[in-house]
Amino acid sequence: MIRLDHVTKNYEGSGRHAVDNLDLVIETGTTVAMIGPSGCGKTTTMRMINRLETPTSGRVLVNGRDVAETDPQELRRHIGYVIQQVGLFPHMTIERNIATVPRLLGWDKARTNRRIDELLDLVGLDPAVMRRRFPHELSGGQRQRVGFARALAADPEIMLMDEPFGAIDPITRVRVQDEFRQILKKVRKTVVIVTHDLDEAIKMGDRIAIMRDGRLLQYDTPAALLARPADDFVASFLGLDRAIKRLNLITVEEIMDRGHVPGPVPSIAAEASLQHALARLLADDLPGLAVTGTDGSFVGYVSREAIFSAQR
């Protein structure tokens, strides 16, 4: 668990708080997306967790321990760190890049080697091909996968990710987001991800922290945030289409009428989102859709009215 306790950060001469009396608890095993306009303090907040920044006042606790009392290098070796520009070491092979933290921790060669293969497999890169390559020989998406593997190398409990998908082209980005989300779910990390992309925050975050001018405006699950923005700024930040975004978070299965199984009308899969279902209804001007299970059989029915009322 990460706890920020009345944390304030001032930069000398700036005359304002970069982070202003922030209170935030991040539960173990959850992913928190920090979002807000640039200069809102989200990156500074993240960098205080691994002591790359020091709070002016207040405390940052990791598993109950004040990070100010830890050795910063020791602390950072146990917190994964991923940044937008990746920051791979250009003069080292991929395997040496990934082995950075194990090397610092004094792992033996065999253990490090096993781990490198394991991690490259995990992020979908072929160890036989990739190990001896240099960073400049990789595409942007591959580089960020290596950066992610490098951060995971010593199996840290916590991962800090600063705009990890920002430098990847939009088409690859969606795929890498999906992959990272799957991996993070599988390895059960406590994750702080800084982003300025609302869709990314909704997709990646179990909870979203919206910040502005160094203050935390709202800290909630994506669904709750979209349904009940705390103030006008949050509402305008989420945008007019927040209602539609919210439909993306609910599956057809959650609201379908199981008692009503119609004949062979146009159908949709049970795990599809309501946004997807609504798009189908609008495109083909239908009153409702039959719902199919994983085996293709009809399991229920979802109507236009059901989708609209789920929104409320």
């Binding site: 020791e74 940044i83 070491f89 610092l104």
Partner: peptide, 15 residues
């Protein structure tokens, strides 16, 4: 040297 390289090195706990 690319500042992000040094940021990464620092953030991973290199002395």
């Amino acid at each position: 040297i690319d500042p992000s390289v040094l940021d990464a090195a620092n953030g991973m706990g290199m002395a």
